[in-house]
Design a protein around this nucleic acid. Structure first.
Lengths: 225, 225
DNA sequence: GTTCGGCCACTTGTATACTAGTCCACAATG
DNA sequence: CATTGTGGACTAGTATACAAGTGGCCGAAC
């Protein structure tokens, strides 16, 4: 877990390392974390670890109980729905605020991204596909000119990534994702704000639909009720 | 500045105290803050102060420059627009997700709030009006059932509150606000999602429109370019 | 008078020490 | 055997100490 991000502070590195570990379920839901233990693992002191845990608490990826411990949260339907709500709100509003006439310079990276997705889907490179997926949503957010859209959407995505990582993607899934991406982009390029909103809402809801399957496959990651 | 919130930790109290001081411009934009100085003022150590400053940095209310100092940010058009974007995204999506048929139980507190606003507007009680304004938006967010809507909207509001606090409200302004509130609620109550969205977007944009006036009245609060 | 250079006070970032509270195991007691 | 109390080993919250770096002041040299 130890490697640290180059640019930022130690605290940023600790945050990145912990977030990755949680999202990839290396640190499984319910797992008890101690600040001392994490500090030892990452090789820093408690201070930057605490800083990282405070940020992760904001994202509801950990829960810190005073005088008791810090725990990786279970996947809660409510938290996932919240994250989805934030993401949908921001990204839909972002494509709504996209300039109605897009010059070729703005559209070019998006088209390139879609082509790259096509190649990744053919080859079956799941990591590349996921990366391009993120990049596309980032590009769509940036159309609004409000960088905060992607920044907050990214943060909310922690909950959703945990789910996405667990769903076993097959070729059909990727093909469908790609088709939906193309539908959104087509509407945006045509200046059809209502259509873009509709397609994007539909697309974002896909990740939510896999939740019951994941719950069946990994009941131990969910809060027993 | 010193009083501390009862429920939470020392860090929470420091955050609340600092945020209030910044939003009310007791700590003016550009003001240099030192963690030691703040710790002395609030009467705690640097650790909880740092925790508070990290949160305020997230909200772009302070900027921390390593090895140099922490500064109250100037009012930046870009930051205000970002906050507005977040708020509009979340609240519009919230009223869109409100159940199409509202039972009287859900609508009652909203109607009560509007009546109270009417009274506050007549008396000219600006503080009460601002408080009821917040409460109404809170109630509207809660219609969606997603508590995160209000939580994030509230956070983004730091930037907007700084502006709102500086605008000198007159009776006409409050009357207009109240009329807009009523228009939003009427559309929501009628189950007219499109209408509610339109009215809410219009209403939220009002606070942005006062920005040039405030800039003329308080140029020292804005970043000279 | 101007400019360059070094020192110093002060900043945040990080590490460590101390405080207060919770859980659990285990022993003593009914 | 069951129950209760008690001590110890943990926890996070807070305070303090140390490290690394910045800017400004002040004096000296030109």
């Amino acid at each position: 877990m130890g490697e640290r991000a180059l640019g930022g502070s130690v605290g940023d590195g600790a945050y990145a390392a912990l977030r990755t570990a949680i999202v990839t379920a290396q640190l499984v839901p319910g797992r008890r974390l101690s600040e001392n233990e994490l500090a030892g693992l990452i090789g820093v002191s408690r201070t930057p670890v605490r800083e990282a845990l405070l940020r992760l608490r904001d994202e509801r990826l950990v829960e810190v109980v005073p005088q008791l411990g810090t725990f990786v949260t279970f996947i809660e339907e409510d938290a996932v729905a919240d994250a989805h709500f934030v993401r949908e709100s921001l990204e839909v509003n972002a494509v709504r605020h996209a300039p109605s006439i897009l010059d070729a310079g703005a559209l070019r990276p998006i088209e390139d991204n879609l082509d790259a997705q096509e190649r990744a889907a053919e080859v079956g490179d799941d990591d590349a596909f996921a990366r391009l997926d993120d990049e596309l949503h980032h590009l769509l957010c940036d159309l609004s000119g409000r960088s905060v859209a992607w920044r907050l959407s990214e943060r909310a995505r922690g909950q959703l990534d945990r789910v996405r990582r667990l769903s076993l993607p097959d070729a059909g899934y990727r093909r469908q994702m790609l088709a939906e991406h193309r539908a959104v982009v087509a509407a945006v390029a045509a200046g059809d704000a209502d259509g873009a909103e509709r397609e994007l809402r539909h697309h974002l809801r896909m990740v939510l639909s896999s939740l019951p399957d994941i719950r069946r496959a990994h009941p131990e990651y969910f809060q027993e009720i």
